[in-house]
Nucleic acid binder design. Structure first.
Lengths: 231, 231
DNA sequence: TAAAATTACTGATCTAAATCAGTAAAATGT
DNA sequence: ACATTTTACTGATTTAGATCAGTAATTTTA
């Protein structure tokens, strides 16, 4: 596998969140006393743009998208897999409104931690706060990559980006069962559904990927990587 | 003035960075011993994508752009005025490479603080770290707005966004001397130079702005705001 | 298991915006 | 003060990609 440290649209963190290891037993207990576990069905909304932020959301299992809604279309800011915090950029002191929405791609279990408790820990445990800063920095750099991909690459490059992201970061395999619709894939790569269909067909014709029913395999990884860079 | 809390492409923080007020006298002394003041001329590069991060950059005076370079064009991620930290998203532990470039729009004085010292403070002073988290959160939310503007608004909306940003956040006046070129304005609003010229002319014809030599005045603020929202 | 509703796909058309190709006007250097 | 470079501007052309309009194939619901 090539290095994945170039500009691309993938936002999936490979390592899970280790910040909680920096808390003392008492601090962990404090969190556990002030948290609740919630199960979300596919498509369900975890948080809605404009509503009040009362909790920090940690993904136990599942996969979600974080997005902004326009008049007719939506911009997916990032996708977040299990083991990560969802709404870190809402812990901002004085800010109590979500600046984005989030919805589950599949059945998802989230742990909601009281935001006051979380803020208290940030203000009293410096190593914990520093590890949160690390995550925020990484998120920010990933967002820049996606920003670049969606504004400066064309369709082939954008779709290649997402296919590589799915293979490398989400399914961790060169062939995977694609249980998201073309429409969702279009939303992810910021193009129309029709375009996704055409691009996928082109990739199939060019023997870069193969599609069998719902199963997608990446045949020519190098080619797809090339397209992701220069397409 | 309308509230500016909707999705727009402006990335200018209105309040200056207060994080340093949370440091003790000794901590401030530590920073002062490990900092250096550098003056940059217009157009000069403060940091370059791919090079090593050795300092945290604080803008004393001036205005800079933070950007990603593509094959032929560049994506401006944000513009940062005096009183702010430039490369917070590079304080990430273990990361020692800039993931973006920055260049001065005008003569700029920057204070470079040794990144090891900065990281040390983050790991030992929780309120300081928490205030840095606040800034990172705000940056992140602003980036989302710009992301949305550049991907989901069309030319008129994007240009309106930038004009409003210049007026409200940078010059803090409804008429200002525009000392940046059309090319730079194009880069800022993510469009071609020719398009900027045409849009500006249209705005002038529609009596939304007036242009006299280099002087730009916003005549119909409400109209421009409308365009920024729905254009 | 039939009907209804999504989803997948295809080709034709349309359009926003870039690119191209040029001239005019400033700004800069010598 | 003149030559050179950069910037501003304009109209014509091109193009990437969206939208439209339809059919076929699934999936969901009853």
């Amino acid at each position: 596998m090539k290095n994945f440290d170039t500009l691309h649209s993938c936002t999936v963190r490979t390592d899970t969140c280790e910040c909680f290891n920096l808390l003392s037993l008492e601090e962990m207990a404090l969190i556990e006393e002030n948290q609740v576990e919630i199960k979300y069905k596919k498509g369900e909304v975890l948080c809605k743009h404009g509503t009040f932020v009362s909790h920090v959301i940690f993904l136990q299992t599942g996969l979600i998208k974080v997005y902004l809604e326009g008049e007719h279309d939506t911009l997916i800011l990032k996708i977040i897999p299990a083991g990560n915090l969802v709404n870190l950029s809402s812990v901002l002191k004085g800010n109590n409104i979500f600046h984005y929405s989030a919805a589950a791609y599949e059945e998802t279990i989230a742990i909601l931690i009281d935001i006051k408790v979380f803020r208290h820990l940030l203000n009293t445990n410096a190593p914990f706060a520093a590890s949160i800063i690390d995550i925020l920095c990484e998120n920010s750099i990933q967002t820049f990559g996606r920003f670049f991909s969606l504004t400066h690459k064309q369709l082939y490059g954008r779709l290649a980006d997402i296919l590589l992201c799915l293979a490398e970061r989400i399914f961790k395999a060169m062939n995977f069962e694609l249980n998201i619709t073309r429409k969702e894939l279009a939303e992810l790569s910021g193009m129309s559904t029709e375009s996704v269909i055409r691009m996928l067909k082109k990739f199939k014709d060019d023997k870069i990927i193969s599609m069998d029913e719902k199963k997608i395999s990446i045949i020519d990884y190098d080619k797809l990587y090339q397209i992701s860079q220069f397409g």
